[in-house]
Amino acid sequence: MKLRTKIAGTVALPLALAIASAASAATIVDTDAHRLQIGGFVAAQAYWEMPDAGEMNYGMDLGSSRLGINYTNKTNAGDITYMYEQTVGGRLRHAAILHDGWVAGQSWSFFANLNGLGETLDANGNAITSSWASRNPLLGKNINLGDGMSVGVALEERGTNSGNAVVSGATNASPLPDLTANFKGNFGGVGIFAAAQMYQVNDPTDAKASEGKVRMTASASLPLGDTMGVKAAFTADPDRYSAFSASAQMKMSDQLRTNLVVEQVMDDGAAGDDYMQLWVNAIHKTASGWEWGAEVHMVMGDGTVIAPTAGGAGTKDGDMTFRLQAKYAF
Rank of each mutant, 00 (worst) to 15 (best):
residue 4 R to S: 15
residue 5 T to Y: 11
residue 7 I to P: 12
residue 9 G to W: 13
residue 34 H to L: 11
residue 40 G to E: 01
residue 42 V to A: 10
residue 45 Q to Y: 04
residue 47 Y to H: 06
residue 50 M to N: 12
residue 51 P to I: 01
residue 56 M to E: 15
residue 65 S to G: 10
residue 83 M to S: 15
residue 88 V to F: 15
residue 90 G to A: 09
residue 96 A to Y: 08
residue 104 A to P: 08
residue 105 G to C: 00
residue 107 S to Q: 06
residue 109 S to R: 00
residue 112 A to V: 01
residue 114 L to K: 04
residue 115 N to D: 15
residue 116 G to E: 02
residue 121 L to G: 02
residue 137 P to M: 04
residue 142 N to T: 05
residue 144 N to C: 07
residue 146 G to E: 03
residue 155 L to Y: 08
residue 159 G to Q: 00
residue 161 N to K: 13
residue 163 G to R: 00
residue 165 A to D: 08
residue 168 S to R: 09
residue 171 T to Q: 13
residue 173 A to G: 10
residue 176 L to D: 13
residue 178 D to Q: 01
residue 187 F to N: 03
residue 187 F to I: 02
residue 193 F to Q: 05
residue 203 D to K: 02
residue 206 D to F: 09
residue 206 D to C: 03
residue 217 T to S: 12
residue 219 S to A: 05
residue 220 A to V: 07
residue 224 L to S: 03
residue 225 G to T: 01
residue 241 Y to W: 12
residue 266 M to W: 15
residue 268 D to Q: 07
residue 277 Q to T: 13
residue 282 A to E: 09
residue 288 S to F: 10
residue 291 E to F: 10
residue 299 V to H: 07
residue 307 A to C: 12
residue 313 A to N: 15
residue 314 G to T: 04
residue 320 M to A: 12
residue 320 M to G: 13
residue 324 L to S: 05
